[in-house]
């Protein structure tokens, strides 16, 4: 297989296993390129990319921008904080206006689940979902699985537990799809109030006990409590959450084995992870960030290959 089966990256759900493997193989090459003295390649010189961020983002936005620049694309950035959305423009109008500037690829983050799917049906550009509400965040899941593959050689057969606010997390859902497709075992852990109702239909098992979950897994992917998405109180206090589900050095030392700690960022230090764990040798958090650029370069390169000039 030397081409993606999809025309857009809307979610891991829509990808074949062979697509994920192709992205990983391409990312391996880009990882080498970005360690060269000159990290820029001219592949996307004819391409214009719009980064539309209707929701706050630091690392995803920077990572996409860096990937695009390393591929020599022209980029325009848009963030809803300083835009005409506040003046009442619809999503489709905003995007169509931007497309009139001859944009080939749109990277979009939006608070509404399905925003990227909606765009892909209505406009003529390649769409990359950079997070749509509580739905999916495919590039994050790809870089998470890629980092596990880098650490262990392969993802197949590994046991991964996703810990924390599963209910509000697009990272969790995309991770579950991605790891499953690659043959890993995935379970989740956290307070029952933060578990989605569809866990059973996803056939994902749930640990309510943190220690039990950590004893089971090879890798713990720890998520942030998304206070900004919580409209009601799902647990008594952050302090109590940290006491029951926070991972610190004592918790790790109490395990019978070594596990790997991942976190998609931003970390709330002292809540889900203590500083001594986040900065320890167990953590591959900074590798995830580095791999994020290579993964995004691979996705952009492969999707751009689907654009036909002439």
């Amino acid at each position: 297989m030397n081409n993606l089966s999809v025309d857009h990256l809307l979610g891991i759900k829509y990808l074949e296993k062979s697509d994920i493997e192709l992205i990983f193989k391409t990312a391996d090459n880009f990882k080498k390129i970005i360690s060269q003295p000159i990290k820029k390649v001219p592949s996307l010189r004819d391409i214009t990319i719009a980064n539309l961020f209707f929701e706050n983002s630091t690392r995803t936005k920077l990572s996409f921008e860096l990937a695009e620049k390393r591929l020599s694309a022209d980029i325009i950035n848009f963030s809803s904080v300083s835009s005409s959305i506040k003046k009442g423009e619809t999503l489709l109008d905003t995007v169509n206006n931007i497309l009139a500037m001859k944009v080939d690829i749109v990277v979009i983050r939006h608070p509404n689940p399905g925003a990227s799917v909606f765009l892909s049906r209505n406009i003529d550009a390649k769409i990359i979902n950079a997070g749509d509400g509580t739905h999916e965040h495919p590039t994050q899941a790809l870089l998470d699985s890629y980092s596990i593959r880098e650490k262990y050689g392969e993802v197949k057969g590994k046991k991964i537990v996703v810990i924390g606010d599963i209910l509000h997390s697009r990272v969790a859902l995309s991770n579950i799809f991605c790891l499953r497709k690659l043959g890993a075992e995935v379970r989740v852990c956290g307070p029952s109030s933060l578990m989605p109702k569809n866990l059973e239909s996803l056939q994902v098992e749930h640990f309510s006990d943190l220690k039990e979950a950590l004893e089971w897994c090879d890798v713990a992917n720890v998520l942030r409590i998304q206070l900004e998405r919580q409209d009601v109180n799902y647990f008594p206090s952050l302090r109590e959450y940290a006491m029951v589900y926070g991972i610190d050095k004592n918790v790790l030392d109490g395990l019978k084995k070594d596990i790997t700690i991942m976190h998609p960022g931003p970390i709330n230090r002292g809540v889900e992870l203590s500083s001594d764990v986040a900065d320890s040798s167990h953590s591959i958090i900074l590798d995830q960030v580095e791999n994020g650029v290579a993964i995004r370069m691979a996705v952009l390169y492969l999707l751009a290959g689907k654009i036909k000039l002439n």
């Binding site: 090459n29 390649v41 592949s43 391409i47 390169y301 751009a304 290959g305 036909k308």
Partner: peptide, 8 residues
């Protein structure tokens, strides 16, 4: 990555 025909 240095070719000129990715989109062609």
């Amino acid at each position: 990555f240095y070719r000129d025909d990715l989109m062609r």
